[in-house]
């Protein structure tokens, strides 16, 4: 049967049983994305069913996940290598005997470095004086995200390569903060003290709500609940309502409309999402997400774009995924990546 028509009568339980669909949800690739996005376009009334099915597949997880400790991981490896050597006794693999120890030591060292790094970041909240109020800064380097609370109980999830400044205590009639980059805010409701985010040319005013705000080249605000007012430097005010996203492009173009929650909020759940991204956009996302620098000599077509999503995947797997559809070569050398034509 033609794939296009196969799915027309599918109910949730049918999608949940379909390997081609599951593959798309878990490991979307160029081909599956193309098929399913097209399918949704042609069958918009089936979208809720498809979305539900997608969600069910994505949400199912082990209730308890058991983790092999670093120590057990290494001991087990050494035992396996040692015991199979004894049993094999042909000696031909002896040249490798030091390798697993090196691997084991590296493993420990890097886990530790990572641990310290995280601790450091928690202390990176440094103070600086400005008038009477003490302002604090949280500055995330590339590759690291951070969740914390502001003095009023507002919860902030700060994305990598982003920073936020806030006063040690909100004393005045307003709660004012400044930010760069991308963050998710869950603002503590306080009808008497509006919460204001000052960014280059705009001011975002809210009372109590949750939303994602991206202040990079473009300004993007996606609202989950509540109401947000965005004022620009000329005094114009735009109101954003739940499930709406406001986009102000660098060239001054302003638009408002629905958004794909996974695309906007995915970063908080370790989803790295590419959607029709240009080559420079892909590179920038990778650098920010993994905290690496990328040198590229790759020649790409003008209309080059990439879509794909990765959940909790290490850099090499993401590069592998992109390279398959884009046909490039990459080398990973510590934190420097080089990409070139094959």
């Amino acid at each position: 049967m033609d794939e296009k028509y196969k799915y027309i009568d599918f109910e949730i339980e049918d999608f949940l049983n379909d390997e081609f669909f599951i593959q798309w949800v878990k490991n979307p690739g160029e081909e599956t994305n193309h098929f399913w996005l097209k399918w949704i376009e042609n069958n918009p009334e089936r979208r809720p069913i498809l979305q539900k099915s997608k969600e069910i597949i994505a949400m199912i997880d082990y209730k308890e996940r058991y983790v092999l400790s670093d120590q057990a991981y290494m001991d087990l490896y050494e035992d396996i290598v040692e015991k199979s050597h004894q049993q094999r006794a042909d000696g031909s693999h002896f040249q490798w005997s030091g390798w697993h120890k090196t691997a084991a030591i590296l493993f420990l060292v890097f886990s530790t470095v990572y641990g310290i790094d995280v601790l450091n970041k928690r202390n990176q909240v440094e103070s600086k004086n400005q008038h009477v109020t003490t302002w604090l800064t949280v500055d995330n380097p590339a590759g690291q995200k951070y969740k914390f609370q502001l003095p009023d109980g507002t919860r902030v999830h700060l994305n990598a390569a982003s920073s936020i400044e806030y006063p040690q205590s909100f004393d005045g009639e307003k709660r004012t903060v400044r930010m760069k980059g991308e963050a998710f805010f869950d603002v503590k409701t306080d009808p008497n003290r509006p919460f204001i985010i000052e960014i280059d040319n705009s001011q975002v005013t809210v009372l109590g709500t949750s939303f994602n705000l991206k202040n990079e080249e473009d300004f993007e605000l996606a609202l989950v609940e509540g109401k947000v007012e965005v004022a620009d430097s000329t005094g114009g005010i735009i109101t954003v309502l739940p499930n709406e996203m406001l986009i102000k492009r660098k060239n001054g173009e302003v638009s408002k409309g629905a958004y794909d929650p996974l695309e906007v909020f995915g970063w908080r759940e370790q989803y790295l999402i590419f959607k029709d991204d240009s080559y420079p956009e892909v590179i920038e996302k990778l650098e920010e997400w993994f905290g690496v620098t990328i040198e590229s000599t790759l020649k790409v077509d003008k209309d080059w774009s990439y879509s794909g999503q990765y959940h909790n995947k290490p850099l090499n797997q993401v590069l592998e995924g992109i390279s398959i559809s884009s046909d490039f070569q990459y080398k990973i050398n510590n934190k420097s990546i080089t990409i070139s034509n094959p």
């Binding site: 539900k52 969600e55 994505a58 949400m59 199912i60 997880d61 998710f184 929650p261 995915g266 759940e269």
Partner: peptide, 17 residues
Amino acid sequence: IFCIETSHETKLIDEEF
């Protein structure tokens, strides 16, 4: 055995549930 959890605080990712 094989207990299932409907994972993470996906509150925000999901539209339908």
